[in-house]
Simulated scan of single mutants.
Amino acid sequence: MLDLLALTTEPATTPSRFFRLHAYEPLFATEGVCYRIVGLSDGLLARWFTLLRLPQAKTLLLQKKLIRPFELDFLRKRYSRIVYDFDDAIYLSKKGSKRFKHILRSSDQVVAGNRCLAAAAAAFQEKVTVIPTGVDLVRFVPTSMTIEKPSIVGWIGSYHNLKNLYPLLPVFQEVRDSCRHTEFRYICDHPDNRLNSAGWTYIKWSRKEEAAMLSELHIGLMPLQDTEYNRGKCGFKAIQYMAIGAPPIASPVGFNCELIKHGVNGLLPMTPAAWGEALQTLLADPDYYRAMRIKAIERAKDFDLSKLFVSLKPLLFPPTA
């Protein structure tokens, strides 16, 4: 029998699936955890074919997937312990809300990526624990502590989230005009004509090269519109930036306000003008930049995967189970 069976989304490259499941695989191996990760398709017949063939396990971890109530009822009869993990405000749609409530009420434990999500879950489940999305500090490391003057500003994310950069493109252009040696990059799964036309350098995202791509950035960007959905985000971009020593400039939305101490380990500009001022300050003041860089690296240690695993393990395998 498996110790852990994890059911999650497809494809395997989905950020949530990778960073909240696959990233823990080396730690599972070290701890001798016998596990299997299975992706569930959206098609009803294909999903049932998968569900009927699942192996037995001591704990079933349902990661983010909002399965149908009758599918969960089927799993509830087969597995004695079910843990639900989520890191986005997936409960906001009408269909998502109904499934979300049923999953939470049927689970033995819920793991939420931040306090905002935990508060939403607490209305339907008493056992809710916050475990942020962690970063592998063995892979994501600063390449050098001796950057004399920052010059490479960048963003990483999925193509559908590039829209968060668009309202600030005029501001970024003003920064480029005044700081002519500054380069703007975006690391993404697809190129974007609008950013390319604005002079940004496109870096095609690769899981294998992701850490190396990020390590070349000097400053990381994370603009967000202040929406209910974005307030549920877990700030992982900013955590990655911090880990590689790139002070984050992020919108003061949701978890970003807990993660970043403005002016110490990052900046939280509230207006387009403030975004421009934040970038200009970091690019023009190497001493201020280096001090913030050191604090950002220190903050990232709070999200070390190995540290978070110490909290996650007893939730998956409680001592009394």
Rank of each mutant, 00 (worst) to 15 (best):
R176Y: 01
V135P: 04
E183M: 09
E298N: 03
Q240P: 07
V110F: 01
A118K: 08
F70T: 11
K301Q: 14
R99E: 02
T13W: 06
I131F: 02
R36A: 13
W200D: 02
W205M: 06
Q56N: 13
P170H: 07
L217T: 04
P318H: 02
K149L: 08
S144Q: 10
P26Q: 09
R290I: 05
L165G: 00
I67P: 04
I103V: 07
K65S: 14
K301I: 00
D226G: 06
P318Q: 04
L62F: 07
Y79M: 10
V171F: 06
N114T: 06
S306G: 08
D136L: 11
K237Q: 08
A118W: 02
A250I: 02
Q125M: 00
M242N: 12
P318E: 03
Y91Q: 15
V175F: 14
A119C: 00
R53L: 08
H181I: 00
F140W: 12
P191S: 09
L165A: 02
S41E: 12
M242A: 13
R293G: 05
L27S: 09
R176P: 00
I244N: 13
Y91G: 00
E174D: 12
Y289I: 01
A121R: 05
I90Y: 06
A121V: 01
F172K: 10
C34S: 15
V130K: 05
D3S: 10
L282M: 14
M213E: 11
M213H: 14
F303L: 10
S158F: 00
A123P: 00
D73S: 14
F303G: 05
G254H: 07
F172Q: 04
K233G: 04
P252W: 02
D73N: 07
L45N: 11
P286S: 05
T146Y: 09
D42V: 01
S306I: 11
A6Y: 01
E277C: 03
I187L: 12
G39M: 07
I152C: 11
K64D: 07
V171C: 11
T146D: 15
G43W: 01
K313R: 15
Q225G: 03
L44F: 10
S158H: 05
L217W: 09
G32L: 02
R231F: 04
F124C: 01
K313G: 03
A246C: 03
Y84R: 06
V175H: 12
A119H: 09
V38H: 08
H181Q: 15
P314F: 10
K237E: 04
E25C: 06
